[in-house]
Simulated assay, not measured.
Amino acid sequence: MAFHEVRFPANLSFGSVGGPERRTEIVTLTNGFEERNSPWAHSRRRYDAGLGLRSLDDVAALVAFFEARRGQLYGFRWKDWADFKSCAASKKPGPEDQILGTGDGLARVFALRKGYASGGAVYWRPIVKPVAGSVTVALARRPVAEGIDWQVDVATGQITFADPVPEGEVVTAGFEFDVPVRFDTDRIQTSVASFQAGDVPNVPVVEVRL
């Protein structure tokens, strides 16, 4: 899939509205009971980039970004201000935030992920667009050095260790991350008069699978 490793201007995404979307198929049986199934293993996020615009300069920046991505053609990074850390919003990411897996003495590659837990259930979200310079890693609660013990591919979210992780050692990580998205429209409509009157354009953005 065509993707540009560039982030939508963070000052424009601040104030936008959006969040996760699920797809659930519900069949009501003749006895009144329901059968529910989801064809999606992972949620998909949608946002409205238009709500972050505050000036005509912002509109110009949006149009330039839209044109450079050729509308819906190229994906890009998006900062979800409500969910962009491996930890709570009020905290700073640390190397023990998220469990990536347990070593078996052979594996060297582990994928970044974030767990969402509630009521004994947990959903593990794949993180494929970590922010460069934000990732920290620990083995068995011992911080390990980037560039010496491990490396991260910020385009895929894969952590690769220099040596296989010893059997039984838990791999954890902390990070900031972006959401891979694309514009969900091939047209942006705005005018000076309507914008000055407080009418901002609707600019839908949708998460893409990579």
Rank of each mutant, 00 (worst) to 15 (best):
N37T: 13
G52A: 04
L12Y: 00
Y47F: 15
L12P: 01
R36W: 05
G18A: 08
F33C: 09
R45T: 05
T28Q: 14
S38L: 07
G18Q: 07
D48H: 03
F14L: 13
A41Q: 12
F8G: 01
A49T: 01
W40V: 06
V17N: 09
G32P: 06
D57V: 09
E5L: 14
R36G: 05
P20M: 04
R23A: 12
L51N: 07
T30H: 10
R7F: 06
G50P: 02
A2V: 11
R44T: 02
G32Q: 10
R23E: 15
D48N: 15
R7G: 08
S13M: 00
E34F: 10
F8P: 01
T30N: 11
D48C: 03
G52S: 03
R46H: 09
Y47M: 05
P20C: 03
A49D: 02
P20V: 01
L29G: 08
H4P: 02
T24Y: 08
R54I: 02
F8D: 00
F8K: 01
E34M: 11
T24M: 12
H4A: 13
D58R: 01
S13Y: 00
G19Y: 06
H42I: 06
G50Q: 02
G18D: 02
L12M: 10
F14A: 14
G52E: 00
G50L: 02
L53D: 00
D58L: 03
R45E: 09
L12H: 00
E34P: 04
A41P: 04
F3Q: 02
N11C: 06
A2M: 09
T28E: 11
H4Y: 12
R23F: 09
A2Y: 12
D57L: 09
E34R: 15
A49I: 04
E35I: 14
L53S: 01
G32I: 09
T30C: 07
G15Q: 07
L53N: 00
A10V: 13
